[in-house]
């Protein structure tokens, strides 16, 4: 297993280099211009000078190499210097955003807390709801619980978050006035009152995300459980006199987890990617909002950096999923 992880990690690094190159070329090829959002009253010559000062006049390959060096060498060194106080970073060029003209990674770090709080919690809550619903739905297939669960999860998935978010705001913020419609990212939880405030402002976005995620995961959980409940080994286990609880929660569940683990592993990087629409609706301004505003403003260094960070996470979690397959089903071997 260790051998496998080491080998895969090596391949992953190569994959990552390749992915960052493909993304960079894609962004270089995509139409768009960082000066597009400036007022039309700014003349074209000035816009040309701005593009020049952003380094857009250079060959894309040169820009890629510069970015690559900054991302994989300068930024880690800078982080080490910040953490340890050692002089590892020197005074080299960091990755600078086109929009704010400030280091990209500083803004990314600034955005991580609210993203993890809201999107991460939404995912965790969604998963925690989804697993029992999926299990019970499958065990009692076509019971009223199953029918209701199916109905809610399908509606939850088919109604997009831009609508559920606004609906919740209209009901709970406008009419009832229970929760704020705008997320305050500057709130520091240092007292009970502020904790209540924080909890209140998280209720709506977390519920929207939890509903959406739960819908998806519970469907896979249910389907996979159903597959396994009819297998011969279940009959054998029951025949051997194992308790129903042990049969379902140990044997069936373990064998049903493979697709669910895959789905969850695919979902975790998306937590870091933020939930673009939900963040916009509730003004959470996390990583998702950062990415979409950067794309709209053609802030290439920002988009590139964020997508490569996501790529790292995607590769990492898919690797974790592969390892977990082996744990869940020892017959799966990779060597």
């Amino acid at each position: 297993m260790l051998n496998f992880i080491i080998r895969r990690s090596g391949i992953s690094v190569l994959t990552l280099f390749f992915i960052s190159f493909v993304i960079f070329m894609l962004l270089a090829l995509a139409p768009g211009d960082p000066t597009a959002s400036l007022p039309l009253s700014i003349p074209a010559e000035v816009k040309a000078q701005i593009r020049e000062s952003l380094g857009l006049g250079q060959n894309p390959l040169v820009r890629f190499v510069k970015w690559f060096y900054a991302f994989f060498w300068v930024e880690p060194m800078y982080t080490i210097e910040q953490l340890t106080g050692l002089n590892t970073y020197g005074d080299q060029q960091r990755i600078i955003s086109f929009q704010s003209r400030s280091p990209v990674m500083d803004i990314v770090w600034q955005r991580i807390p609210q993203t993890l709080w809201v999107v991460g919690l939404g995912y965790v809550v969604g998963t925690l709801i989804a697993l029992p619903i999926g299990i019970i739905s499958a065990y009692r297939q076509y019971s009223w619980f199953d029918q209701l669960g199916t109905f809610i999860s399908m509606v939850g998935f088919s109604v997009p978050t831009f609508f559920t978010g606004v609906l919740l705001i209209v009901i709970f913020s406008v009419n009832l006035g229970w929760f704020p419609s705008i997320y305050d990212t500057t709130l520091v939880v240092d007292s009970w009152a502020n904790f209540v405030k924080q909890a209140k402002q998280m209720v709506l976005p977390v519920s929207v995300l939890a509903l959406y995620n739960a819908a998806q995961i519970s469907r896979f959980m249910r389907a996979s459980m159903l597959d396994n409940l009819n297998q011969d080994y279940v009959r054998t286990a029951r025949a051997k006199g194992l308790g129903e609880k042990a049969v379902v929660l140990v044997h069936v569940l373990r064998n049903s987890m493979i697709p669910v683990v895959t789905v969850i592993a695919l979902g975790v990087p998306q937590v870091f990617g933020g939930a673009i629409i939900t963040e916009q609706v509730f003004k959470v301004n996390g990583l998702g909002q950062l990415l979409i505003t950067a794309i709209q403003a053609n802030d290439i260094p920002m988009v590139q950096t964020l997508t490569v960070i996501f790529a790292v996470l995607i590769i990492l979690f898919n690797l974790i999923a592969d390892v977990l397959y082996g744990v869940l089903d020892p017959r799966i071997r990779y060597d």
Binding site: P31, G32, D33, T35, A36, L40, N298
Partner: peptide
């Protein structure tokens, strides 16, 4: 056309 393309000055795009 998306505003970031339409109002952009990218000569490679036909949609400005």
């Amino acid at each position: 056309i998306d505003a970031s393309v339409f109002f952009g000055g990218d000569p490679a795009s036909n949609d400005t």
